[in-house]
Design a binder for these strands. Structure first.
Lengths: 95, 95
DNA sequence: GCAATATTTAGATGATTGTCTAATTATCTA
DNA sequence: TAGATAATTAGACAATCATCTAAATATTGC
């Protein structure tokens, strides 16, 4: 997995919002864009970054291109963070 | 917590390496710097970013300034990521 | 095939970022 | 107090980034 690409992708608030928007299920580019005040071109750029980091998957559905979260990478991401911040006794865990 | 600052701080490979270096315990700026081929000034800049994101704590110890991981923020970070990527049934967990 | 719609690509621009050198601040010790 | 060491701050510079407009590509339905 491209650790650097993933972290870079997550560094932008718009991209994080896109990921959050996709939690409720796959959406096409236009539907995702409704929530943001940027041009389709800019949005497309963010999609490219997310795709390059393997955080989202795409599938053409006729005229539309449908985006969805790539859940397998999230496990990698979790591992990545646990590696950076190994939980210590007494921290985290229960709420 | 400043979500944006944290993600931005994590986006740089040198800063992630610094965090990783601090896993084994507190170190002063010079000790941390030995591992990297950058000037003290650049290193200091990275420290400032990490501090601003509240990922590290500092304490002056005489001539030296000692850096250590701020473990409380890691829990926040974990929550932040679980929020972005809520684990779904059948994903993650066992290996 | 053609017009309409959805999305991406190309190219440009201003802002942010990582790095450097030089100067400054803080601390120790002789 | 003066010199040495540790680290930061200030200012500059090249590279990267988020955004835009304009043009290109892909698909649908008449």
């Amino acid at each position: 997995m491209k650790q650097q690409e993933v972290f870079k992708a997550m560094a932008d608030p718009t991209r994080r919002a896109i990921l959050k928007r996709l939690q409720s299920g796959p959406l096409n580019a236009g539907e995702i864009g409704e929530a943001f005040d940027i041009t389709p071109a800019s949005l497309s750029h963010h999609f490219a970054v997310l795709k390059h980091a393997d955080l989202v998957r795409t599938e053409r559905r006729g005229q539309y291109i449908v985006y969805s979260l790539n859940s397998t990478v999230f496990e990698d991401l979790t591992r990545m963070l646990l590696d950076l911040f190994p939980p210590r006794a007494g921290s985290g865990g229960k709420r």
